[in-house]
Design a protein around this nucleic acid. Structure first.
Lengths: 158, 158
DNA sequence: GGACGATAGTCAACCTGTTTGACTATTGCG
DNA sequence: CGCAATAGTCAAACAGGTTGACTATCGTCC
């Protein structure tokens, strides 16, 4: 008797989300293993995207990830050591340091996005593009509605 | 179409899943804080449900969670110490030990299910019951199709 | 009916990532 | 100015997980 059995009735959404997340992240990093960004850790991708869209501070990263700023700082330390980002002084606030992508970071982002796009395409092949976008829209709507219009932090509380 | 770089343009599904999972788990445990099962750790719920549906072995739990059997054993140690489950000998295999719910485990499961049902109901209130079930069905379909018909492990690889 | 590889589980050591707590430097505001 | 609030770091402790080694039992093949 398998512990993964008894699945016919509605599987709890929490479990589905956990599996879906893990599934995507695992597949992504499995494929990245064969590229020049094989050392990418799971959390890196989120920071890379954030750094493309803006120039997040340590606190921004902490808020994005849902950790303390100390943990965010260490995460950035790692990414900096791996050459993906670097810290730059904030022109307007001498306390703050902003994260910027290095050339390697830009390249990594492009690779990640290409591979990730494939993964979503494979999902679309199963349920159809339309349902996939409905799913994205519904999820976004619920998360925003429960969070004052903003999106919550990403890191699973485990 | 909204301004470039905004979040309205497709948020990556991986991120949405991560946020959705965290959101549900956080809300669940926030509400459980005020019950008699305040010491429930995030992973416990999955094991409780598995132990309701069957009598999982340590290896079953490891497969369900996506960890090593050592980690699963430790998890069960904790649940046993907290009085939620206990290990019983397997009638057919002297090597195996099966997990069973204690009375407290059953009570906890009932509480968790009641609170969790509320959470899903709140989701349904935003997107509608129908779309929620479509979402559940689509997710289940994709995960199964990519996993030889079975559902994959739950624990996020982080 | 033994021998042997495979399987279930545990123990112990270690590793990684996160938190808690304390501290410095800068900012904004009364 | 004076001072609370904010941005960030350092350091120690912790939690949960992994790797590796080991025991006991099972199943199979001869």
């Amino acid at each position: 008797m398998s512990a993964a059995g008894g699945e016919e009735a509605g599987v709890p959404l929490a479990r589905l989300f956990a599996m879906a997340f893990r599934s995507l992240i695992d597949a992504l990093h499995a494929r990245l293993k064969e590229t020049d960004v094989a050392d990418l850790r799971p959390a890196y991708g989120f920071v890379l995207v954030a750094a493309r869209d803006g120039a997040p501070s340590v606190n921004d990263v902490a808020a994005l990830m849902g950790t303390t700023k100390q943990a965010a700082s260490k995460l950035i330390d790692g990414m900096e050591a791996d050459g993906y980002v670097h810290r730059v002084a904030d022109a307007a606030d001498a306390r703050a340091r902003r994260i910027r992508l290095t050339p390697r970071g830009h390249a990594a982002l492009r690779t990640v996005e290409a591979v990730y796009a494939e993964l979503e395409a494979e999902w679309a092949r199963v349920v159809g593009r339309e349902r996939l976008e409905a799913l994205r829209g519904d999820l976004t709507a619920v998360l925003r509605s429960q969070n004052g219009g903003r999106l919550p932090a990403v890191r699973p509380t485990w």
